[in-house]
Structures are given as structure tokens and as C-alpha cells.
Amino acid sequence: MWQSFVNIFLDILLYIYKLVDNFGVAIILFTVLIKLVIYPLMRSQIKSSAAMMEMQKSPRYLEMMEKYKDNKEKLAEEQMKLYKEMGVNPTASCLPTLIQLPVIFALYQAVIAAIVSTPLGMLDLTKRIHPEYLKIGEIFPINPSFLWMNLGQPERLYIPGISFGIPVLAILVVVTTILQTKLTMQSPTGGSTASTGGSGAMMTGMMNIYMPVLMGFMAYTLASGLSLYFLISNVFTIVQYGVEGKLNWSALKFGKAKTAALAEPAPVSVAQKPKINPSPSVPAKSSTPAISAVKEEEKIDYREFKNKKKPKKNQ
């Protein structure tokens, strides 16, 4: 079953290779194809995240957080009710990520299977492709070279005068993973971070470190064909969010904070500490619910929930 899945990938990858006669370009096109196929899912993920964020900024939600801050079970129960009423699926955003995991496994195995270096590997390849679509005699041997890389080997760029190889692709993968994680993350004051209090913040922080490190490690140690997939996939995701107008530039801390996601007043960024409103009693009137929500939100320091302390009213 799994092998059949990998073999389909292998067929598609090699078919593209047959058309373009360049394995690196074939991997890039294949990645774009995969991303286009899961585009509807990604789109629903973006929408779901935005809807979640909107909901979590609503006065009702904030009141609920305040009301049940000492009763986590009840809070969870009320949250679920609210999700249901608002038609928001809190797990919807996981689906595209989960779908990509087997794709990554399969692509890696397909890349390794395609770039054979032994007779047994070659024999294995001849059995895995479908002869109705591909003639092994026409495409073999597959040239694994792309730019300075051998796509079947971990990538290093050797520069005269430097005694070691620079893992350019791994560095690019780390950088784009950080960019992607930050740019596509919804603002924590309204996003999932707030919804789960401390654990959400912790998770966000952990993902910010964990994912780039993991992806960088894999790009450093595994075949560069897979690293190329990671890189193109990251870039495509960022572009995709940009096309949807959902890039969270404020997360980069460059200049003035903006949140394209709402096209409305910016929520507090990850790096900004929520401030305590010195006069919390009366919510300011607002022309829009979003502004109102931001004002409302300013009254509460959600880190206090994490630490199980009462919110400070004044400093």
C-alpha cells in the first residue's frame, strides 16, 4: 500500500524529469504540483485560522476566559460550545500539515529510489515504475546534478579558500522555515495562543524553535533533493499566504506592526507584551467590532492565566 503510494510519486517525478530533463527542475515542479493539489486545504486552513482569531477577539470569548479562568474544564467546555456555534473547527488547521507528512516521506523515498547508485537499486527502480507511462530505457540514467548539488546526497557548497563545505540549502531551509512560521502565524493575542493560555504560548515558542531546527537538521543530513522540496514548499506557502493577504508582517518586528490578516487595527504581536489598561472599567466605543475587541483585550494580561495569578489591574 505504502510502496504503491511512493511509486505513484516516483512515476510523476520521473515523468516530469522526462519532460524537462533536469532532476532539480523536476523536483521544483513536482513540489509546486503538490502544493497546488493541497491548495484548497491550505486555503481552508487560512480561513479557519482567521475565523478562529476573529472569534477569540470577541467580547463573549474574552468574558468567558475571565469568567472561567479558575475552572479549566468548564472553560474548555464553553470554548467548544462557542466553536460549535460559530462553526469554527479548532483542528482544521492541522489537516494540511498532516497531509504533507506522508508526502515528505514519499518524496524522499522517491528521490532516493530514482537516483540509483547500485545494480540492485537500478533493478528496484525498474520494478517500481509503471511501464505504461514510462520507459526506463529512455530516462535512465537519471542525472542527479542540479546547480552545484548532487540531489541524492546532502548538499555542501565548496568555495576555494574555505576548508569545509557550506550547507547553503540547509541554511535557506532554516531561514524560510522561520519566515514561514512567523509570517503565517496568527497574532497570539487573538490567535490560538490566547485560546489555550500558557500552553499555546509555549507551543508557539516551541514550534518557532523546533521546526526550523528539525527542518534544518534534515536538510543538513538528508539528500538535497528533499531539502529542495522543503525550500520550495516554504517559499510557496509564504507566497500563498501573501496571495490570500494573510501574511503577518508584524511578527517579523520590522518597522510598524501590521496585520494583513484582518486589514484592520493590528493586534499585539508575538514580541509585544500585552499592556494593562490603567482604566479598565468602561470599554471604549468603537466603530468596528475588531477595534472594540482590541480595546477589550488590552484589559487582560493572558500570561496571568498561565501563572494562575489574578490579573494585575495596576502597576
Partner: peptide, 22 residues
Amino acid sequence: LLSVLLLSSCAGNSALNNATSW
């Protein structure tokens, strides 16, 4: 666990590829 699965799966395949001839 996910990471371990991913890496072990990849390493396993790689090892297979390197094993061999007749």
C-alpha cells in the same frame, strides 16, 4: 515521535539503497 518516525523512515530507505548488489 513524529520526527523520529520521519528520520528513521528516511534513514531506513537510505540504508537499503546503499546495501548492495548481488
